[in-house]
Design a protein around this nucleic acid. Sequence first.
DNA 1: TAGAATATCTACTCATGAGTATGATCGAGG
DNA 2: CCTCGATCATACTCATGAGTAGATATTCTA
Lengths: 235, 235
Amino acid sequence: MNSRRSSSSAAGRSSAAPPSPWRGRRRDREVKREAVIRAAARAFNRKGYHNTSLDDIAAALEVTKPTVYYYVANKEHLLFQCFRAGVEPIRAAFRAVQDLELPARERLNAVLRHYGEAVASEFGWCMVRAEDQDLSPAMSRHIKALKSEIDQGIRRLIREGVQDGSIEPCDAKMTAFALAGALNWIAHWYREDQSLTGAEIAAAFVTVFERGLRPRSASQVATRAPLKRRERIAR
Amino acid sequence: MNSRRSSSSAAGRSSAAPPSPWRGRRRDREVKREAVIRAAARAFNRKGYHNTSLDDIAAALEVTKPTVYYYVANKEHLLFQCFRAGVEPIRAAFRAVQDLELPARERLNAVLRHYGEAVASEFGWCMVRAEDQDLSPAMSRHIKALKSEIDQGIRRLIREGVQDGSIEPCDAKMTAFALAGALNWIAHWYREDQSLTGAEIAAAFVTVFERGLRPRSASQVATRAPLKRRERIAR
DNA sequence: TAGAATATCTACTCATGAGTATGATCGAGG
DNA sequence: CCTCGATCATACTCATGAGTAGATATTCTA
C-alpha cells in the first residue's frame, strides 16, 4: 500500500521471493486489501463509521480514495469486512470448544473469554456496532445471521450447563443477553481505558458472571449499618 | 405542532383556557418542544442518528424543517436532549434510593431495575448511543460527566455492598462495567424483540446478576466425562 | 382593528462525502 | 525497447442534508 514515492515499501512487498509469480501477485494484493480493512477498522474505531470518510481512510494509508476503491467495493463492504474480522475469532472459539470434555460452564467461560478479547480487539468496535440501519438489506441479513449464530451458541451452552448441573438453572435467553451485552459493551469504554488487556477484562467479567452479587458464604447480611466486615475496596 | 391545515389541534392547544396569557404561551411552547424531542428520539431509535435527517423528524411531526429549528438549536442539541431525557430517570433512581435503610445490594438492585427500564424506554437508544464523536467537545464533556456520575454511583453501591456484606467481594470497577454494559445493551435488541416489558427485562437481569452462573446448591457438577479435571482451556 | 409577538412556510446556500471517468506510471514478458 | 496489464492519481459528478434568509400566517394585546 505504500506509495511509490516512499521507496521503503518494506512491509508487504516480497522480501521473501514469492514462490510463484501468479501466487505472488495475488498474495500481494490480498495483503494490501487487509491493510485497507485494518485501516478502516482503526478509523471507524476512532471516529465512528459515519464520521469517517473514505478520504480519511485513504489518507491514513497515504494513498487516495480511488486506490481504496480498487481494493474494496464500497464503504458498506468495508464495514462488513471489519465485522467479519471481528466475529471470526468468536466463531472459532465455539468450534474449538465443542468437543472438549468439560462441563458446559467451563466451555462457556472459554467462549466468553475469547468473546471478550475479540470485542477488545481492533475490530471489536466494528463488530459490535455494525448496525443494520447502515447496511443494505442483504448485508443486514448476513450480519444478523452471524450475530444470531453466536447468540444461539451461547444459549445452547447455557442450557447444556443447566442440564449437566454446572450452571445454576436460569432463563437461557435472558442470561445470554446479559452476558453478551456486558461483553459487547467493552467496545464502548475500552478505547478510553486501556488499563487492562482484553484477556484480563474478559477474565474479570467471567469471574463476575460466575460468582454473582449475592454472597455465597452462609454469612448473611446484617441489613445496613454495623458489621462492616470483609475486604476493602479496589476502586 | 399540528399544522393549521389540520383543524384539529386537539392535543396541545389551549382547549382549557390558560390561566395566564404569559404562562399559557410558554407552556404551550414547552409542550411542543418536548414533542419535537420525542419525535427525534423515535426517529433516532428507528434509523440511527446519522441516518435521520431533520427533514425526517419534521415530516413525522407534519411540519417543515425550519419549524423544528424554531424549537431546537440544531441536531446535536436534539440528541443531547434525548440523552438527558433518558438519563434523568436513572439519576432520580439514585436519589430515591440513597436514604433507604436497606442493604446496599438491594439499593443497587433497585437502581439497576430503573436503569433497565430507562434503557428500554423510548429514549434508551439515544442515551446509550450518544457518542462523543458526534458531539461538540463541550457537549461531549457534559455527557461524559453524566455517564461518569452514574458509573461512579454504581461502583459506590457495590463497594458499600461489599462492606455491609450484602455483596460478594469483587472488583467494583469491573463489576460496574459488566452490570451497566449488560443493561445498556438492552437498547440494541429491545426494538426487535419486545416480548417483555422493560421492567420484566430489568428484573430478569437482576436475577442473573444476583445468582451468578455457578450453582449455589451444594450439588456439584457431574462433569461431562466423569471427573475430568477442570483445567482451563488453552487458547 | 392596528400592530406586535409568535409560529410556520418557501426557497434557498453551502459543505461534505460517496462514488467514477479517465489518464498516468510501473513492472514484467516478449 | 515496446506493449500490456496491474496499480494508483487527478479531477470530476452528484446527491444529501444541515442550517438560514426572508416571507407569511396566526394570535394576542392594546
